[in-house]
Design a protein around this nucleic acid. Structure first.
Length: 951
RNA sequence: GCUGAAGUGGUGGAAUUGGUAGACACGUUGGACUUAAAAUCCAAUGUCCAUUAGGACGUACGGGUUCAAGUCCCGUCUUCAGUACCA
């Protein structure tokens, strides 16, 4: 019997599918465990070997947990709304739903052939109306909520309305827009309906607001920052303008503090938590208002101007010797004196050309211009010169800084450069070379009422005094901005929203889903409206409660529907709850109370760190909202999170002579010739970096290019150059799992992906190495069966057999629990090598070994397990118990070191005393030879570990 | 700039609380089997010196602590990722 992996794998994949082996139950005596992979987008290119890395890891863990007696939920589905399908639709006219369906079919086939233990019965697709019905429903919940800062949670908007009706808004402490005028209960009750709706929008957790976007008229679309290169679109090079658009926003900023605090309760890597912490960007300090001193030279009537700044160091307020505004600050043009006008304008023009990134990265170049204006110090009343400088950015804080050169290095550098005074307000600090930026061990001096105080005390006092003056207050600032939620796209969730007199109205949940309408083209309209502007049947009839033809719009009972769609992150912000419910029971709810209660949250979440500030932050936000409103019980969706690294490609190059395009030199022959490296498909390169020239010349795609090529060989072969790059079609280094599964089998692929290195690390793929794990599987097979029969028998296991087995149990269990999958693969290899050497045939050893290997290589494990006489799947067999007694050694091979360097080893009994060890070692001939007559100064003996002789 | 991670043979990587550096593989070399190839099996394989015995060096670099450092401490460099001066 040979190891016929293709047949074996197909057989067990069919078995698992027909037997529903991995279907999870919502009722079980076993403890629950929920393992989830980050939602895949089914791209048209299909999977390459890098994609399954995380899925294999999570699958090993899920299978391990089943062996350990857990009721495991391990679902999979598709984040199937998205841009690539829409792009393809624009180019070909093919409906994105069709493209998506095709891509999912490919994706599913590829996933199935790798042997994952997914519960496919619970699959979800964000683009299915039954699914996005609930995405729309959550949107409505956001709209119907406001954030009460007093109770520190979201509440029904009705509670806000009743407050308005009885006491107005002056006592309301809410997360809201900052331009809301105060009103009394009487005023509220006299507002028109539109006025009331307008006010409420400023409090709702999702609201309409004017947002600046990067608009590209030629493409008729909005572009992300990284789609713009040097001010023009990356695709096509068209001009891009800043444009204001009315869009839905999500008031995520209301949750800034809870999103930050929640990080302390989850088991994520520090790196990931740091990214979110930085993104939320909390800083505690004070806001200070500086009054601008009206310019005497100006003949125009001066209005009084104020500059608001935020500072984390209010204690240093007496160290202010100038202020710096961002060049784009709106006050700049108003306060600049005529004398300085020319210089200021020239500077503004210069900085406008620099990208924000550029301005921020460059800390060496110091530039700025004096505006000629002065502000008044709130306490000393001294005039403070106001400068502009591009190290201050308009979009951060208030776009203005109170500069304290003695305490801030950037302010210090600026002051030195422009010869501005640097008053020292720290007792005993040396500021002759650099600023003293530390908050610790400071004693404030030269600061009037703050003298002698430390940072904490002085800050508190300043805030108190500022409040007395009405020129400031204590303030906590967050960098986190509200998230724009509208997309001018077709392939996304439609909003359940229609407009009456320009005011958004929610459609009652009884009428959801509002299904994406058909359009004849997936492009924006000529008027610049989103693609849904092309739909003919896209109006809401409030009598029929149905979507009807646009022609019926009369603004009385039939109204226009929202034309934007939701962004990609909408559907992925709650999908983990949907999996909790059996597909059969999903009709009336997004997930039933029982299901939510049973599964709670995701116990293990595996995915890439690129989602750190998108998906992982937004879904935490939505979960908190759902909890506040009583729909779920958990505050955090993902208890433990592991980031997998990326598998990189190993590109191959041939070297073309620059003067003769048909001449290629082998890698070792380049020397100082002028050659051009050209990517070639990695499939034509073997493990020794040798090129298959015939294969290359007959390649369907590029063979023609090399038809007349002459390859200059070294030692009879053409050696290619190699380099590690991201796996990508354009670099011809993509390796497809289909061919790996066909050539080596899914079990080899699974083992090899793990064997490559630590899960979280970035590492290059090299197909050549897979023969190692493939040979291992063949050896494993041979341990159980020979040419025509099963070798396994009831032989009593030997001591060595037991030692090998239990050492393996211990290591594999520790490895899986530490997500150190690469080292378990080595451990399996060692175990099989040892058992082969020991000629072990004992079922008592070989059966538990299969359970250990089954999470990693499930197909071969199932096949051999059934050969051992089992009729049930191995998937729920109990994980073998580790018994330490088998590892107890009677002797130890001591390393004998001289001055810390190991010279030889000496086998001694484990129970030998320290003195006896020393005596035996000192008497040994090799020790005497090593010492060469010298007397050692000291002999260190650590029983069970090492002997070190010093001297 | 800041924050985080990392730097070990030709390659991927291993090394528990400081205790035999290079496990396990790939590749390479030599051998067996074969008409031959593939497959399989066996052996060698960090670098340098040495016929051998053996020795010297060696975990990015420079210091330090220790009987003992890949591991701990200080400094430097490089790479990758995140972030963008939050005042």
């Amino acid at each position: 019997m040979t190891y016929n992996f293709n047949d074996i794998e197909k057989k067990w994949q069919n078995y698992w599918a027909t037997q529903q082996t991995f279907k999870a139950s919502n009722q079980s005596d076993k403890p629950k465990y929920y393992v989830l992979d980050m939602f895949p987008y089914p791209s048209g290119a299909g999977l390459h070997v890098g994609h399954p890395l995380g899925y294999i890891a999570s699958d090993i863990y899920a299978r391990y947990k089943r062996h350990k007696g857990f009721n495991v939920l391990h679902p999979q589905g598709y984040d199937s709304f998205g841009l690539p399908a829409e792009q393809y639709a624009i180019q070909t006219g093919q409906h994105p739903a069709v493209t998506t369906e095709t891509n999912i079919t490919t994706y599913r086939r590829q996933l199935d052939q790798i042997g994952f233990s997914f519960d496919w019965s619970r699959e979800v697709r964000t683009s299915n109306p039954e699914y996005y019905k609930w995405t729309q429903w959550i949107f409505i919940q956001l709209f119907e909520s406001w954030y009460n800062n007093d109770t520190n949670k979201a509440e029904d908007i009705k509670t806000l309305i009743s407050k308005f009706e009885t006491e107005g808004n002056t006592n309301v402490n809410a997360a809201c827009d900052d331009d809301i005028a105060p009103f009394t209960a009487a005023e509220w009750n006299n507002f028109s309906s539109e006025e009331q709706q307008d006010v409420l929008l400023k409090y709702r957790l999702t609201y309409l607001a004017e947002t600046e976007v990067n608009w590209c008229p030629a493409l008729g679309t909005v572009l992300a920052n990284d789609e713009i290169v040097n001010g023009v679109s990356e695709r096509g090079g068209h001009p891009v303008v800043r444009k204001k658009m009315t869009q839905w926003s999500m008031r995520i900023s209301a949750y800034a503090e809870r999103l930050l605090q929640g990080l302390d309760t989850v088991d994520w890597t520090d790196a990931l938590k740091d990214i979110q912490k930085n993104w939320i960007g909390k800083s505690v300090g004070a806001s200070v208002t500086f009054n601008v001193i009206p310019a005497v030279s100006s003949s125009a009537v001066e209005t009084s101007h104020k500059i608001d700044v935020f500072t984390t160091r209010p204690d240093t307020i007496f160290g202010v010797s100038f202020m710096t505004l961002a060049p784009e600050h709106e006050l700049v043009s108003k306060i600049t004196t005529p004398e300085q006008k020319e210089a200021v304008e020239a500077y503004i023009e210069k900085t406008a050309k620099r990208s924000e990134r550029d301005r921020m990265a460059d800390v060496k170049t110091i530039s700025g211009v004096f505006t000629g204006a002065y502000a008044e110090h709130p306490f000393s009343k001294a005039p403070i010169p106001i400068w502009i400088g591009d190290y201050v950015l308009a979009s951060y804080g208030t776009g203005a800084v109170m500069a304290v050169p003695c305490g801030d290095q950037r302010d210090y550098d600026f002051a030195k450069h422009f010869d501005i005074a640097i008053p020292n307000i720290f007792e005993g600090a040396d500021i002759s070379e650099e600023a003293y930026a530390s908050k610790d061990h400071v004693k404030i001096a030269n600061s009037d009422f703050l003298n002698g105080m430390n940072y904490k005390k002085a800050s508190k006092r300043v805030i108190f005094e500022l409040e007395k003056l009405g020129q400031g207050e204590g303030k906590t600032n967050y960098r986190l901005r509200d998230a724009v939620f509208s997309r001018q796209r077709y392939w996304g969730e439609p909003f359940p929203v229609y407009y009456v007199n320009g005011m958004p109205q929610m459609i009652d949940q009884a009428h959801l889903p509002i299904v994406l309408p058909e359009v004849e083209k997936y492009l924006p309209t000529e008027e610049g409206e989103p693609p849904l502007g092309r739909a003919d049947v896209w109006a809401w009839d409030t009598n029929q409660c149905a979507v009807v033809s646009n022609e019926l719009i009369d603004h009385k009972t039939v109204f226009p529907l929202e034309l934007n769609t939701m962004p990609g992150w909408a559907g992925s912000s709650w999908y983990f709850f949907r999996y909790m419910e059996d597909a059969a029971n999903r009709d009336g709810v997004f997930a039933s109370e029982d299901a939510l209660k049973y599964w709670e949250n995701v116990d293990l979440y595996i995915g890439g760190s690129e989602h750190a500030t998108g998906h992982l932050l937004y879904s935490r936000f939505w979960v908190k909202l759902l909890k506040d409103r009583g729909f779920v019980n958990v505050e955090e969706p993902f208890k433990k999170l592991i980031n997998q690294g990326m598998i990189l490609g190993t590109s191959a190059f041939v070297y073309r002579d620059e003067s003769n395009p048909n001449l290629y030199y082998s890698q070792g022959l380049i020397e100082d010739k002028n050659v051009l490296p050209i990517h070639v498909k990695v499939q034509y390169v073997n493990a020794s970096d040798e090129l298959d020239i015939e294969g290359l010349k007959t390649d369907g795609e590029f063979g023609e290019d090399f038809k007349d090529a002459e390859f200059i060989l070294e030692d009879g072969v053409y050696k290619v150059g190699r380099d590690v790059e991201k796996m990508s079609k354009s670099k011809y280094n993509v390796v497809n799992p289909d061919s790996i599964c066909a050539d080596y089998g899914a079990d080899s692929l699974r083992l090899y992906e793990m064997f490559l290195g630590p899960l979280e690390q970035y590492k290059p793929w090299n197909t050549a190495g897979i023969t190692g794990v493939h040979n291992f599987l063949k050896k494993l097979w041979k341990l159980y069966v020979n040419d025509n029969s099963l070798k396994v028998n009831d032989a009593e296991p030997t001591k060595d057999n037991l030692k090998t087995l239990h050492k393996t149990i211990k290591k594999v269990q520790e490895d899986i629990e530490n997500f150190s999958f690469n080292t378990s693969v080595s451990t399996f290899m060692i175990a099989v090598n040892e058992l082969t050497q020991q000629k072990c045939t004992s079922k008592a050893i070989l059966e538990p070994l299969l359970v250990l290997i089954s999470p990693y290589a499930p197909h071969i494990a199932e096949e051999l397990y059934s050969k051992l006489g089992h009729t049930e799947s191995i998937s729920t067999a109990a994980f073998p118990e580790f018994d330490a007694s088998h590892l107890v050694e009677s002797s130890k091979k001591y390393p004998i070191s001289f001055n810390g360097k190991m010279r030889f080893t000496l086998e001694l009994p484990m129970d030998m005393s320290k003195d006896a060890i020393e005596k035996t070692v000192m008497a040994h001939e090799k020790t005497i030879a090593q010492l060469d007559g010298r007397t050692p100064k000291k002999v260190i003996v650590v029983p069970g570990k090492i002997v070190n002789i010093v001297g």
